[in-house]
Design a protein around this nucleic acid. Structure first.
Lengths: 218, 218
DNA sequence: GAAAGCAATTGATGTAGATCAATCAGCCTT
DNA sequence: AAGGCTGATTGATCTACATCAATTGCTTTC
């Protein structure tokens, strides 16, 4: 009897912990939204009602090449990478996503074609996801939400433009130094070989660049 | 008396020709819109009422580094390039815009900061331009217009994503062959040295690639 | 706590593509 | 028709970065 009680208790406890975590994970997204737009109570509830929370472990795939991507996904904690694999079998990292970034393959999402990219977790991660249908509904129903999404898209566009410019104009060393300046968080969390891949250089070259610049600084 | 009449006549004639051209230039934009959205008469007129038509000559600047870009610009004929100049003084072409493309510097437009890019005409060109304030008004007043703009932005984002992927994954030759496949119009109209700059290779390398691939095809 | 993976470093060597330089061809100008 | 630009081609050489290979220090795993 005692034991049974303990069992029930611990089960209930686990459920509570589970709910608590879910709340935490969503709260980060809530905060992100609140910082950007002022939603009324009904609107907030609408958003919350279609949000799906997903946890994925380090090394786990969120998307595999060949699959169709159907979500809009917000990273509430952790870190993921989006990358392609070319015919020669080498990986090239298109982008990283940490807390408060979005991730996914927009091309596959909008075209309905299978993705040419892979996305996997570099750290255990937590996501707030929306099916694209729901996401479009939110954009339609909540103009301010739509406006926010638009801003994000605009910013991403600009970021990519700058990355293209950098890839054309800069040497390997310049690319790395600019990267560190622009994304110091990444430089600390992401393994060096992945940063190299993102910059379009080999891990060996990046290692040499680092020892050289460190030497020059004294 | 005769001569004076001839003068007036020819002047009126020139004005008519001028008006005719303006109509033509705008018509291309009108067609572009009509292919994408169904606007009612009042909406079409609203768009037309804030459109400004601009002609620029080959080699003329549309935007110079350091200036703030304030427009949304549609290319109704001709061809332009957007490029940056790095500290070493070398030019790098970020993008080309031909008929039915848009051009400008979104970063400067949205941030209000001076642009780091130059835009000039590769051919005599005709543009339909909107001040950003007017353009935002159109997006606000005409939901379908807003939707169209959003689609364009999404597509541009995807295009850039793919360009980044190509720049990381492909050899110079692959980049060129993909470029020709994807944008055959450009390959014909744009001088080779500019294509090289766009691809991030030197004109010499591009020339060698071309002779080699031609030889291989027999 | 040994074994197995994985990431980073360092060295030796290779190469795609850059740079430098000269020539050539097609133009616009006068 | 002649000179002057601009862009393309070709050759010789150079170099930034890649590739290959070995070593070392880690985490992860059983």
């Amino acid at each position: 009897m005692d034991r049974q009680f303990a069992g029930i208790f611990s089960e209930a406890f686990m459920i509570l912990i589970g709910l608590y975590y879910l709340r935490l994970m969503y709260e980060n997204f809530q905060r992100y939204i609140d910082e950007r737009v002022a939603l009324c109570d009904a609107e907030s509830k609408l958003v919350r009602s279609v949000a799906v929370i997903k946890k994925i472990r380090k090394r786990q795939y969120l998307l595999q090449e060949g699959d169709v991507w159907k979500y809009d996904a917000f990273v509430s904690s952790g870190c993921l990478r989006t990358y392609s694999i070319n015919e020669k079998g080498s990986e090239h990292i298109i982008g990283f996503s940490i807390e408060n970034w979005w991730c996914g393959d927009r091309e596959s999402l909008l075209s309905g074609e299978p993705s040419r990219f892979n996305i996997d977790a570099i750290e255990d991660s937590e996501l707030v996801m929306f099916t694209h249908t729901n996401f479009e509904m939110l954009c339609r129903e909540i103009p301010a939400f739509n406006q926010m999404v638009n801003n994000i898209l605009n910013k991403s566009f600009i970021t990519q433009q700058n990355r293209i410019n950098a890839s054309l104009s800069n040497t390997a060393e310049e690319k790395y130094l600019n990267f560190v300046k622009k994304y110091p968080e990444f430089a600390l969390r992401v393994p060096q070989n992945m940063i190299a891949s993102y910059l379009g250089i080999t891990p060996e070259t990046l290692s040499r660049i680092r020892t050289q610049t460190a030497r020059n600084k004294g």
